[in-house]
Design a protein around this nucleic acid. Structure first.
Lengths: 233, 233
DNA sequence: TACTCTGCTGACAACTGTTGTCAGTAGAGT
DNA sequence: ACTCTACTGACAACAGTTGTCAGCAGAGTA
């Protein structure tokens, strides 16, 4: 096997696991000597890959490390840039930050002609309707969904009344302009939707929930039917 | 210089230009012999890079070739996936197609834990309000903007009247739910906005326009002030 | 047609980088 | 103390890369 290819395999072997792996194991898997593995690891570290080696334990790759490289062509890059700008404008601070960093990385490799097109910004995404409180709540809710964490919500109902709920948050939907939380409501014992912009506070609890056949986003989606067309004018 | 690095430089040299470049020039730039360049080119072709060599002319890289590889970390990938889903749902067919291809490429390299998160689709983007005719018009308009091509537009005014215009299309804006075309209107001798969903037809002409200080998207943007907050309920 | 420019290939020797082996040090856990 | 493992240096064997030379082929030009 080629050296370059072996280095690539090596990152894959390290990336795929959470526990440490010894140089000997890697050497056996790649059919080379341990010495070569040590040299390869050094090479990878030199090129910036954060591998942690501990005597007596083995090698581990730092989590949240960059994924394998991706190649996009010109039209895909345009779409990714536009999409990132949308995320920048219409999601919580954390996602928006990630989108910004992605945009920077993309900009760094654009050839001149595409850079001109990107700077021209002929596809604009105004961000004027994101407000800071909404962004924080949206982020808290998103985290709770990811962690399957039960949350306590206070919000203003459409009729102006104040209300509070204990919810199992299942997912968020962006309906052309507004984010909406879909959750299992313990008060109503049923699915409910909550517009993020009407939420006053969202506090994650210590309790975790589990999704099931009759209690999941998929199940909720199977219950509703999207209207064929909706007028947003 | 390392061979791997030289191959990388080589693709960059080829990618940056539209005219052909000879092996001799490449050899001089990279400080190696022509023979080595020929071997390198062969290596690149073997790994799938579409380089065209013609005797008496030189080398050219096929346009729309994939850009240099990009490395994203986990949070950036999540943002890119969400953004791509937004583009898939809310733009014209061509961009949406590019977004789909980008999503496929991303999915192909996701580690298991992220794949689960992506499949879970906790951030949904409903696409029910894209209709096919709008998508075609939006695409035609976008192309005209890119090419700086004058267009002939027919549309339904808000008051129900039919109207037609000759326009220099400058950009498109997505205002939380609707795409809007910003253009220089030759009838009014001023900037005008046109909602894409009210456009009946858009035909590019043979004429091309040039943007200038007083006749550009930047200038238009400098004229308006975004409202601090808008109610989309 | 002859000539030039350039891509492209093969052979080979000089050179450079890579690998395995061996030998040894150092840190962490038992 | 003992084991496991990371890590380093030296060196010889080996593999891959490079430059040189020589020659063929196609495209364009005088």
């Amino acid at each position: 096997m080629n050296k370059a290819e072996r280095l690539f395999q090596l990152t894959n072997l390290l990336r795929g696991r959470r526990t440490a792996i010894t140089a000997r194991t890697l050497a056996e898997k790649l059919n080379v000597s341990e010495r070569t593995i040590y040299r390869d690891i050094q090479a990878l570290e030199l090129s910036g890959i954060p591998i942690e080696g501990e005597a007596g334990i083995g090698y581990r790759i730092r989590h949240n490390f960059e994924l394998p490289p991706l190649m996009f062509n010109r039209s895909e890059i345009i779409a990714l840039l536009l999409g990132s700008r949308m995320v920048q404008a219409w999601s919580d601070k954390e996602l928006a930050g990630a989108a910004s960093r992605a945009i920077e990385k993309i900009n760094a490799i654009l050839p001149d002609d595409l850079k001109a097109l990107a700077e021209q910004q002929t596809l604009l995404v105004p961000d004027y309707f994101v407000n800071s409180k909404q962004s924080d709540i949206s982020q808290a809710v998103r985290k709770a969904i990811e962690n399957k964490q039960r949350i306590y919500l206070t919000y203003n109902r459409a009729d102006g009344e104040y209300s509070e709920r204990i919810l199992d948050p299942l997912g968020m939907v962006y309906w052309g302009g507004k984010w909406t939380l879909i959750a299992w409501c313990h008060l109503r014992e049923n699915y409910r939707e909550f517009r993020i912009d009407r939420i006053n506070s969202a506090s994650p609890s210590d309790e975790y929930f589990q999704t099931s056949e009759q209690h999941s986003l998929d199940h909720y989606i199977s219950l509703i039917t999207y209207p064929a067309e909706t007028d947003y004018s």
